[in-house]
Amino acid sequence: MKWEPFHHPDLSLPVVRRKVGQELATLLKDTGAMILSKGASDFYGHCYPNQEAFRKSIARLRKQGLVVTPHTDGTMPGLELTPEGEARLPAYYKPDKLWSKPWNHWWYVLVFDIPEKDRDYRNKLRAFLKTLRMGCLQQSVWITPRDIRPEYDDLDHAAAVDSIAHLFESKTVLGHGNQSVVLEAWDFDALQEIQNHYLAYAEKNLSLLEGNRFSPAELMQLLRMDNLAYSQAMTNDPLLPNELLPESYTGKQVFARHQALGKRIAEQIEPH
Rank of each mutant, 00 (worst) to 15 (best):
K2H: 10
W3E: 00
P5G: 08
H7T: 02
L11I: 14
L13I: 07
R18Q: 11
Q22P: 00
E23D: 08
L24K: 06
T26W: 12
T26F: 05
L27C: 05
L28S: 08
L28P: 07
G32P: 07
L36D: 09
K38A: 14
K38M: 11
G39Q: 03
S41F: 14
D42F: 14
Y44I: 09
H46M: 09
P49F: 01
N50C: 13
N50L: 03
A53H: 09
R55E: 12
K56C: 04
G65C: 07
T69K: 13
T72E: 01
G74D: 03
G74L: 12
M76D: 00
G78N: 04
E80M: 13
T82C: 09
E84D: 08
R88Q: 11
L89Q: 06
L89T: 01
P90V: 05
P90F: 01
A91E: 08
Y93S: 09
P95Y: 01
P95M: 05
D96S: 10
L98K: 13
P102V: 11
W103D: 12
W106I: 01
W106D: 10
W107I: 04
L110T: 02
V111T: 11
F112P: 14
I114L: 08
P115R: 11
E116T: 06
E116Q: 13
K117N: 03
K117A: 07
R119Y: 03
D120K: 11
Y121F: 15
K124M: 07
R126T: 03
R126N: 05
A127G: 05
L132K: 03
R133E: 05
M134L: 12
M134Q: 10
C136I: 03
L137A: 02
L137G: 08
Q139N: 14
Q139D: 10
S140T: 15
S140C: 09
W142F: 06
T144H: 02
P145Y: 04
R146G: 02
R146L: 14
I148T: 07
P150Q: 10
E151M: 12
L155S: 01
D156Y: 01
A159K: 06
A159N: 13
S163Y: 01
S163T: 06
A165D: 00
H166K: 10
L167K: 09
F168V: 01
E169H: 13
E169S: 15
K171S: 11
L174K: 11
H176P: 00
L183Q: 11
W186G: 05
I194R: 15
Q195H: 03
H197V: 00
L199W: 09
E203I: 05
S207V: 08
S207G: 11
L208E: 10
L209P: 04
G211W: 02
N212Q: 15
N212K: 12
F214A: 11
A217V: 14
E218V: 05
L219H: 01
R224Y: 00
D226K: 07
N227C: 03
N227D: 13
A229N: 05
Y230T: 06
Q232F: 02
T235F: 09
T235I: 15
N236Q: 14
N242I: 08
N242P: 00
L244Y: 00
L245V: 10
T250W: 01
T250Y: 02
T250G: 02
G251C: 06
V254T: 05
F255C: 12
H258K: 13
R264I: 00
E267P: 02
E267I: 00
E267N: 09
E267A: 08
I269S: 02
E270H: 12
P271V: 06
H272L: 14
